[in-house]
Design a binder for these strands. Structure first.
Lengths: 337, 337
DNA sequence: CGATTCCATGGAATCGATTCCACGAGTATG
DNA sequence: CATACTCGTGGAATCGATTCCATGGAATCG
């Protein structure tokens, strides 16, 4: 199957390659007839410009890279969707890289993206060093999303990891909870670290119990949420409320409660992160700390466009807010005695 | 920021561009010294070959396109992950295109993928005609996944849309259900059509009620699942069991039951499609019709590699099996009276 | 020992689109 | 009426890597 090139179009239209190119890329200096002839020929032949050749000559590829830890995580799925739609509206393609929560795969994708000469990268980075350094030193515009690296000065859009958690802890203590278990995210990510810090601060501020055993360190995956729930519920003096640092771990933790016949909203209060569709499944509905994921994605793209255009946008945080639902009722003191 | 090219590497190593290229692409006819010098220079300079230039000269891009209706659908999220990981193992990048359940966006992405000269495309197509025709006529290897188009002769890997549904209906009737509501997928997709047909066949085979009003046509999105549940439950003679054609519509439908205080597994039997993680949230656990999504993704990639290699693999179906859990208990006849 | 093969190598062509430059025709200006 | 200017156009250079082809030196064979 021979690909048709601009040369074929030019010949069919009876003009030169240069003129054909000018018509097809909307250059103003073209005559009415040339335009008509070339457009007709291109349509008739089904001409489709070779993006490789074009990108080689121009230095732009109209492509951005999006580097995420895992698309199967609903949070990142939604984020990917938001980024992709926004990028599309700017005429950019999105090249997804799924690091699979794995630094080596992340390095590999950074490599590919640099080779593909993407015009910019939006990344939720994990670890530091490796090819991440090279990416930043390469001069390719980069915006971090959801997670940041303290060691690197890069514009970012990240969730507010403080307000929501403070509000959640305040809410729980106001309802009589003193033992609030926390299923934390990995401490190798800024989001994991900040949320854990906020939880500790909030405990201190409200006077709730601060035993170290109330904290379980997970990895943002469902299995670790399940393990966390088991560990915390098996404590000699178990928590009466659980707070989980992301949606997948919440899914795992709720699954364990279901297995054990622990009724969320009655036997145990539960606060999750992220207000994802799937939480519709649970009854009573979950109290969550929600961030506007769509806004995060859009903002990340807008900032990247600004960087590509030579700007240096300031970093942003996306507000987190507590949405109180049925999973965090009043705690009945008498259960303890 | 000047990009370093193979010319720079060649000069630094004291050899010609041709030799440098040979060393870097592992051509056998290279001397020990040349190899050492070039590799050292490439490493020192941090050389990263320009993928555009390479693809232009070779005719291969080592990239496949993956065209899906919506990554936010857990089914397609899992599928995307499976495809991407498998493609990676063959040394291929995956270019995602999110059609957003929208034929125009699908057309746009087909356009981009053809321009990018992807080596092959894996697609879950919607509608027919449009650029889909052009894609197939272009000679680019294509494999359909999850959905097929009858009008087009293309290797595909699709779920078995019959066995699981027959088993589910048999299971429900055996437990005393005669009125089984069905929330169908869009009839513009083969999966939607086949599952509806299987449902009708199964009703006929088991002697369950076959009122047309027991069928609600949804669109594979959560909102339509909710609407379907409302419509069916509001019937004068409502179903005692619900069957939904995908996971998102199940999420929507279950949400409505929760709102209305209808206890799934007690007041209403429920069978969902796809055994996704998020279903852990619900208690009692859902009876589902499950397909091995990972296997589907892997197989699609393997078949595409075969087509790229000049083969013409036969189409495959992935078995669907009923996994019985707590959401489909015995139906208590006396409730009806 | 002369003829042939083999191998590493560099120069040049190549992939397909864009763009610089030069040119001629037509129009406006002094 | 001559000069300057604009405008559409085609030829040729260009982007960066790969690959064909020719070359010279070393190795092999009769």
């Amino acid at each position: 199957m021979k690909q048709i090139t601009i040369k074929d179009v030019a010949e069919a239209a009876g003009v030169s390659k240069a003129t054909a190119s000018r018509v097809l890329s909307g250059h103003p200096a073209t005559s009415q007839e040339a335009r008509k002839a070339v457009e007709a020929a291109a349509g008739r032949l089904g001409f489709r410009p070779n993006a490789q050749a074009r990108s080689l000559r121009k230095t732009r590829t109209q492509t951005i890279g999006l580097l995420l830890p895992d698309v199967r995580n609903p949070f990142f799925g939604d984020l990917a969707h938001a980024v992709e739609q926004r990028a599309r509206s700017f005429g950019y393609m999105t090249l997804f890289g799924n690091a699979n929560e794995n630094v080596e795969q992340q390095d590999e994708y950074i490599d590919v993206m640099l080779s593909q000469r993407v015009d910019g990268v939006i990344a939720a980075p994990q670890g530091d060093g490796g090819n991440l350094d090279q990416l930043l030193r390469s001069g390719v515009p980069v915006v971090f999303v959801d997670r940041v690296l303290d060691t690197m000065e890069v514009p970012s859009v990240s969730p507010d990891n403080s307000t929501g958690i403070h509000d959640a802890v305040k809410h729980l203590t106001a309802r009589g909870h003193r033992r609030i278990g926390y299923i934390a995210g990995p401490q190798s990510t800024s989001t994991g670290r900040e949320r854990l810090r906020s939880y500790k601060e909030a405990l201190a501020a409200t006077g709730a119990d601060t035993d170290a055993e109330l904290i379980f360190l997970g990895d943002f995956q469902a299995a670790s949420g399940a393990e966390g729930a088991r560990t915390l519920l098996d404590l000699p003096n178990p928590p009466t409320a659980l707070l989980a640092a992301d949606s997948l771990m919440s899914i795992g933790a709720v699954g364990v409660c279901n297995e054990r016949g622990i009724a969320i909203g009655a036997d145990l209060a539960f606060v999750a992160h992220d207000d994802i569709d799937a939480f519709n499944l649970i009854n009573p509905p979950l109290t969550v700390i929600a961030h506007d994921i769509d806004a995060m994605g859009r903002l990340a793209v807008d900032m990247l466009m600004s960087v590509i255009g030579g700007g240096s946008p300031a970093s942003n945080t996306i507000a987190g807010r507590l949405i109180v639902r049925g999973s965090t009722p009043e705690f009945e003191k008498e259960r303890q005695s």
